[in-house]
Simulated scan of single mutants.
Amino acid sequence: MEVSKAIQRAFAPTGRLRASINLGNPLLAHRAESGEAAGVSVDLAHALAQRLCVELELVVVDAAGKSVDVIANEEADIGFFAIDPKRGAATTFTEPYLLIEGYYLVRDDSPVHANADVDLPGTRVVVGKGSAYDLYLTRELKHAQIIRSPTSPTVVKTFLEEDLDVAAGVRQQLEMDIRGMEGLRLLDERFMVIRQAMGVPKSRGETAGNFLADFVEEMKRSGKVAEALRAHGVNGAEVAPAIRR
């Protein structure tokens, strides 16, 4: 992929590529023992900075909604998000590079046994504020009440402390949060597939959007995304199919 000065300016107007990194989804990013952010999204940010021949600056946040705001306010040049129509107002998304699953969590004695049992009057569903599944369930649930926890990693805590009926989240996050606990179960089917993509502010223009889209497809085809998943021990997420451009 050839990199022109115009592309460099579009992605790094400050002279550095500022990448918004969301620690709220541990499949994508986490704090390493050194205290630095690490993970699949960080690896992809480094690869893009190298491609652009610029230095990388990480803008680290703890929730998906904050990551969206950072891009919308142009405090970062690229970000890593689940694709959602509401987020598309200010951001140009690539095709997904990862597919992950949204699941429901309930107590063992809950009358909820299938996804269809969730959307009933009186059912209180806790989600991570501003997450992809928050946006999705806000559109899809017609009868259940949505309760918003500050971030995705606090969903289970809120679910337990406030004695709510259902917790919604990324399957691996829920499984990690309830490890060692008794009396809780995930439902047997996912309620959505979360399509994780890269994004750039729309103000950077169509050429920048196309360049980033081509970069993501190359990362998938070359095996770089799969390599990052293995390197960070990520299970339960799959590389999205490559698309010819």
Rank of each mutant, 00 (worst) to 15 (best):
A197T: 00
P153M: 09
L105R: 04
N210A: 14
L44P: 00
I146L: 08
K86G: 09
A82Y: 15
R87W: 05
M198E: 00
R244T: 09
D84Y: 15
A116C: 00
A90C: 12
V106A: 04
A82E: 15
G180T: 05
H232R: 06
V54I: 03
E140R: 14
L105H: 11
D43I: 01
I21S: 01
A90N: 14
V3I: 04
V54W: 08
G183Y: 07
L229F: 09
A47D: 06
T14P: 07
E189A: 08
R171H: 12
N115R: 09
A45D: 00
D84R: 14
R221H: 13
N73I: 11
H46K: 14
T207I: 07
A168Y: 02
D117M: 06
I78C: 04
K202A: 04
R185H: 13
E101Y: 13
T91D: 12
P26G: 07
V200I: 07
G24W: 08
S131K: 02
L164W: 08
V125G: 04
E57W: 10
T154D: 14
V193L: 07
Q8C: 00
V156D: 12
R107H: 05
A45S: 04
I147M: 04
P26T: 11
C53Q: 15
I83F: 15
E238P: 09
F215S: 02
Y97I: 02
F11W: 07
F191K: 05
K5A: 14
L187I: 06
T154W: 15
V216Y: 15
A6Y: 13
L135N: 10
L212Y: 12
G88W: 12
I83Y: 15
I100G: 02
R204T: 01
I21H: 06
A47I: 04
A63F: 11
N73V: 13
M181V: 03
L17H: 02
P241Q: 04
R195T: 00
V112I: 05
Y133P: 02
A29F: 01
E2A: 10
E75D: 13
R16H: 14
E161Y: 11
P201H: 01
F93K: 05
D119F: 07
A12K: 06
T154C: 13
G15N: 03
R87I: 01
I100Y: 07
G169R: 06
L120S: 10
A82T: 14
L174R: 03
K129H: 05
D108E: 12
V200W: 09
I78F: 11
A45E: 00
T14F: 11
G128Y: 00
E140Y: 10
L141V: 04
V61P: 06
L164R: 04
V60Q: 06
V126K: 09
G233Q: 10
V112Y: 10
A114W: 10
V239H: 08
G130V: 01
V112N: 05
D62M: 10
H143V: 00
D43S: 08
D69L: 14
V106M: 06
R230G: 09
Q196W: 15
T154F: 15
K86F: 15
V155F: 09
G205F: 06
R139Q: 10
R16C: 12
L28K: 08
D84E: 12
K5P: 09
P85M: 09
G128S: 00
G24T: 00
V3H: 08
A12N: 07
G88H: 13
R185Y: 15
L187Y: 13
E101K: 12
T14L: 13
R204Q: 01
E227F: 11
V60T: 01
A49N: 01
E2R: 12
N235V: 14
L105F: 07
